[in-house]
């Protein structure tokens, strides 16, 4: 489902003497449907960078990033948007929403984007919010004023609203209490069971051991200090 071949990445800082910082080289990995792969490696080793490249948020310098039959590394913006709408979900660590939009709409949004019927989309959003223990009185409010943990759960609900065949999870269980953590673990297991290919970053080792089938150490993709 997800196939990465020989991907490299560097940042060129034009406004700081055009310094070029190579951050990744020769990254390759495969994830099959129903499989969950954890990216590991110390902080700053490029886990999030790789994940962002897979999502098309960062531009890969070289290599191929195949999701289904789309190469994210070379696809046109609208192909990537299409991919994000129907194929590739992403739960980031931060919630970014239009101010003033009610939480329930934020969660239903990915479903509505796929053309789902409004009533059904809102119903699904309510189920997710309920499962994730967001009090009903908050559903009609914008999540911008919520606490960090609440925002994280809204973000997860949003990421799981639509059944994407491929999912990227960046620290989905960080800042969650035990009860909610358990809910999220179950959601990930459910996604795997329906055949989703998942790549995740988990600092929480217990969580990682429980849902992940394999670990890939991204330190192996760090460019060799040739210079």
């Amino acid at each position: 489902m997800i196939s990465i071949e020989n991907v490299s990445k560097s940042f060129t800082l034009h406004n700081q003497g055009a310094a070029t910082i190579p951050v990744m080289d020769g990254a390759s990995l495969q994830v099959a449907p129903g499989e969950c792969v954890a990216l590991v490696g110390q902080s700053g080793s490029g886990k999030s960078t790789l994940m962002r490249m897979i999502y098309g948020n960062y531009l890969a310098a070289a290599g191929r990033i195949m999701i289904d039959d789309v190469d994210v590394a070379s696809a046109a913006p609208r192909e990537i948007l299409q991919l994000r709408r129907y194929t590739l979900g992403y739960v980031s660590q931060f919630l970014r929403v239009v101010p003033r939009v009610p939480t329930v709409e934020v969660v239903a949004d990915p479903l509505l984007a796929t053309g789902a019927e409004r009533g059904a989309a809102l119903a699904r959003a309510q189920v997710l919010l309920e499962n994730l223990n967001i009090p009903e009185r908050l559903w009609a409010l914008s999540p911008t004023t919520f606490s960090g943990g609440e925002q994280q759960r809204v973000n997860i609900a949003r990421g799981f609203a639509y059944n994407y065949p491929a999912l990227l999870l960046d620290e989905p269980t960080a800042s969650l209490d035990g009860k909610n953590r358990e809910v999220v673990m179950a959601m990930i297991e459910e996604a795997k069971a329906r055949g989703a290919a998942i790549i995740g970053i988990f600092h929480d080792e217990a969580a990682r051991d429980r849902v992940c089938d394999r670990e890939i150490d991204v330190t192996g993709f760090t460019p060799k200090a040739a210079a």
Partner: peptide, 16 residues
């Protein structure tokens, strides 16, 4: 490019 890509990983000096 894609909006979030251009804003999060700008390539050109001016965009940066």
């Amino acid at each position: 490019g894609l909006t979030d890509q251009v804003l999060d990983d700008p390539q050109h000096g001016y965009t940066q």
